[in-house]
């Protein structure tokens, strides 16, 4: 009987009901397309941490649509660090839980975004519909794949980039932008909850003609499915997406992981991590690394979230209940 209990305890410990004492553990709650990035970053950082402190470090990952992940943390998923797709989702966690101060974004360099990305188009081999810019997306018969802006961070960047383009057109105004966006979403046959779901819809299931994608995800598609299968189209204007990171103070203090979590986030800014960032097709912040990989990141005129008055006003205007997205989006209309 004794050995039975011993076995049971061991089995439970194995799945993490009881965490081992000598080793540190971190939970990084992140958004959809960063799976490959953090897999590599975690490996390097854990080895570094072991060499510096002698402590075994396990970094656990949870991935999903950025808004959905924020919701989970609010509901009690104990993230030591948050690495989400946009500042608003982290703001939301801070406001609803009080886990960290409101000025979290000033605590690390570059608005707490150690890497940036932008939104590009992915089309099928040979670009059969001649898609070149945002205006081509609303041609008749074109199907556009983008996730749901209510749950996905990438989808909100997509939306804002399209809006910015429409405003910049001759005679562009709020009204023409709204009309363009309404037309654009009539061309969207399916809204997945996260960017990765949309990637699968477009690349694996073969639905749609154009995929509005994170730049890094677009390169990943090419790498996974063969460069010949898909082409990346760079539009005339896009948006500077800054996916930020933060320490979750209350949780790290509860777990006793503040030191390692801080070191982990700082590590993201080191040249070593920035190399990994660039290799995964995120745009690095480090000048030297950025120069080294300049060839893979075309220069695009980029608007920023500041042009929309910051995330809280953009969220309020476009994505909150009753906002522009709710006004223009009626599922199933073609």
């Amino acid at each position: 009987m004794k050995s039975f209990w011993k076995n049971l305890t061991t089995a439970l410990a194995a799945v993490g009901l009881f965490s081992a004492a000598s080793a540190a553990e971190l939970l990084n709650v992140s958004y959809d397309p960063t799976r490959e990035l953090y897999k590599q970053v975690n490996e390097v950082f854990a080895a570094k941490w072991k060499a510096e402190t002698g402590e075994d470090l396990t970094i656990n990952q949870s991935h999903g649509g950025s808004g959905k992940q924020a919701r989970s943390v609010i509901d009690g998923l104990e993230a030591d660090v948050l690495t989400l797709a946009l500042a608003y989702d982290i703001d939301e966690v801070g406001q609803k839980t009080g886990y960290f101060p409101a000025d979290w974004q000033a605590r690390l360099p570059d608005n707490s975004a150690p890497y940036t990305s932008t939104i590009v188009f992915v089309v099928r081999k040979g670009n059969p519909f001649g898609i070149k810019d945002w205006g081509d997306l609303t041609k008749s018969g074109i199907q556009v794949i983008t996730p749901n802006p209510k749950t996905s961070g990438g989808a909100r960047w997509n939306f804002l980039a399209a809006w910015a383009w429409a405003l910049k057109q001759p005679g562009g105004s709020e009204d023409t932008a709204k009309a363009y966006i309404a037309e654009l979403y009539k061309h969207v046959p399916v809204l997945d909850t996260g960017a990765r779901g949309s990637t699968t819809t477009f690349a694996q299931r073969g639905i749609g003609d154009v995929f509005l994608s994170w730049e890094n995800e677009a390169h990943l598609i090419q790498a996974e499915f063969g460069a010949g299968e898909f082409e990346i189209i760079v539009p005339s204007v896009s948006i500077l997406a800054e996916p930020p990171v933060t320490l979750v103070d209350s949780i790290v203090d509860r777990h006793g992981t503040r030191a390692v979590a801080e070191a982990y986030l700082k590590f993201l800014y080191t040249p070593e991590a920035q190399e990994i960032v660039a290799k995964n097709f995120y745009r690095p912040r480090d000048q030297a690394v950025a120069a080294k990989y300049a060839a893979q990141f075309p220069a695009i005129p980029l608007v920023t979230i500041a042009d929309f008055g910051g995330w809280s006003s953009a969220q309020q205007k476009f994505f909150a209940d009753g906002g522009v997205f709710d006004q223009i989006y009626q599922p199933g209309q073609q």
């Binding site: 799945v15 993490g16 939970l27 990952q61 949870s62 999903g64 989970s72 998923l77």
Partner: peptide, 8 residues
């Protein structure tokens, strides 16, 4: 679940 790899 919270989708923590290797845990939940």
């Amino acid at each position: 679940s919270g989708h923590i790899r290797g845990l939940t």
